[in-house]
Design a protein around this nucleic acid. Sequence first.
DNA 1: AATGAATGAGGTTTCATTCAT
DNA 2: TATGAATGAAACCTCATTCAT
Lengths: 192, 192, 192, 192
Amino acid sequence: MMLDSAVRVFSRRGFHAASMDEIAEQAGISKPMVYAYLGTKEELFVACLQREGTRLMEAIAAEVVGADTADRQLWRGLRAFFTFVGAHRDGWAVLYRQARAQQPFASASAEMRERMVEVVAMMLGRALAAEGREVRDTELQVMANALVGASESLADWLADHPEADPEKTATWMMNVAWLGAAQLLRGETWTP
Amino acid sequence: MMLDSAVRVFSRRGFHAASMDEIAEQAGISKPMVYAYLGTKEELFVACLQREGTRLMEAIAAEVVGADTADRQLWRGLRAFFTFVGAHRDGWAVLYRQARAQQPFASASAEMRERMVEVVAMMLGRALAAEGREVRDTELQVMANALVGASESLADWLADHPEADPEKTATWMMNVAWLGAAQLLRGETWTP
Amino acid sequence: MMLDSAVRVFSRRGFHAASMDEIAEQAGISKPMVYAYLGTKEELFVACLQREGTRLMEAIAAEVVGADTADRQLWRGLRAFFTFVGAHRDGWAVLYRQARAQQPFASASAEMRERMVEVVAMMLGRALAAEGREVRDTELQVMANALVGASESLADWLADHPEADPEKTATWMMNVAWLGAAQLLRGETWTP
Amino acid sequence: MMLDSAVRVFSRRGFHAASMDEIAEQAGISKPMVYAYLGTKEELFVACLQREGTRLMEAIAAEVVGADTADRQLWRGLRAFFTFVGAHRDGWAVLYRQARAQQPFASASAEMRERMVEVVAMMLGRALAAEGREVRDTELQVMANALVGASESLADWLADHPEADPEKTATWMMNVAWLGAAQLLRGETWTP
DNA sequence: AATGAATGAGGTTTCATTCAT
DNA sequence: TATGAATGAAACCTCATTCAT
């Protein structure tokens, strides 16, 4: 399928170095077709990004749904995330990294990220509410942001280490996120 | 100065969209001079990256030095980091993001990041040793990676929110990193 | 045709001064087409050289074939050569001259010339053998080299003198080559 | 000296690839000096050409002067020529080759060559007159042209074969020129 | 799930050449 | 046998993008 070829080429070469010629060739069709169906190179990239992004979101949502407590929600979300990234090693992570850096996609990817952060923030918010506590929204945002950033970072690490295990990575991430450095240093651990 | 102009243009446009013409013009000199002094476009970008990277490292190192306990080291490092990023809003964060995505610089920036992660890992390792505990090296790496990732993420956030306060951001980050979500949810906080 | 334009422009301006822009314009197409079909500027020049060289070689070979004695072979070869050069006045001679001087083509053109010299040397060798005589190979080579050089020289002269007659030039060359100055001075002549 | 450096660089790199920077560096002075004393790159090349050309001419003239008969004049001229070329292996031949091919020097080098051809033609003319014979001027020109061309060719050959002996080369050339192929094939030789 | 052929526009890079000292 | 620093101009090459079929 066309988008698959595009994702592959964009990942391998990077947005700029990727040529429409190569993408068309990979897809086994002619360039004008690519333009007819997906439009401009930029639009094509955005299309790739959105498809992959949606898939990721859905994968996570599907997993999180069944959990009740905050920590189990977080855990399942993380596991789904890393599993997805691990399964699309040179798809998602690379594409996403590009999108965040390349000027014309900054907004598109920022928006996606925003959605993600929002979800995490909401999750944390609900957990707080359940404890009868409340936190200013900004703090929640920042906390969520940090969690997302840490996850992205480990996702990159995962994409670069083919031998690494997604589930184990998720566990580590969960520990860092849930317990924090202090507890970890004290020997506490969180296990599913 | 020439590097300043280059940093500015690279940040605004992105590596590829940045033209040597614009950089030269910004610097108030002619293109051949840029080539004479900094070499190729790629070399120029690397030069920018290195200068900013070095400055950042130095800023952090200078602050960390005076701290004794692990948490204070972490705190001071974070504060220095966010202060620096806040002061160079469209310098470091953007450049660094680019470097990580753009093919030819992937390795160079990966190396820099590796150094950073290494430092954090070492810090955590020493803290562990002080507690008489020991952890497998990979786990340390992953933990450090997560912390660095979270910080990068907040750095981006900071770069995108001109009104945000670096020191406060650092505090939040410290809380997330040190206490973890669980403690935070319980209402605990870490304060300098 | 594209190669024709290229030959024309290369001849007029010289390899370096010739611009791909001008070649494309002469051919009535756009620059990218030139690159698409013939490749790099260097490759384009080589293509010109080879086409013209092959044509020349074929023209000579076709004529020489029918001759039996050494002098008639030489005569026919020379006639074919000068006729060809006369008919492509600003093609072959100029291109060839360039190739010999321009660094990147030195070896390619040297090779072509070597083939030519080899042919002449072989012809002389056979003539000698027919007379029951034998000569060291180096001497044969040098002699052939001299003949080829003399021919090249007259070819240049012919290219520069539009009014000159190729066949008459061939006759002169034949006389010089076959009889040598001594005989010519004595009033002897060789006629077809 | 400046011209020496220029000759060396032009020979090694070719006119175009030679950079004024390298020439100045070789000469151990600064570029503006080169411009101050020798002018433009083209003028510099012409200056090289003329100096070397003059030296060659003088070397030949000095030798020819003492000879009486035509064949001895020719012989001495040839010997002087090849000796000179042999002694300046990568000076004269390469420079001259370039000059003949590179557009802006075509006329300058043609003129030099014309002088040479003229001298040879005159020599042949005198020899003919001494024999009481007379030939149309054009024929004389063409004959001289052929001789000069053959010599140039062997000069190139000599420049490319460091082990070759100039005097022996001159002898071969003399034989070809004086006796012609027919006599050589019959086993006749000319010896000084 | 058409395409081959064509192009406009732009970018990096390199030098010959010249001021200002 | 002055020079360091600067530049204008131009050349090669590539690619996203579109007609004409």
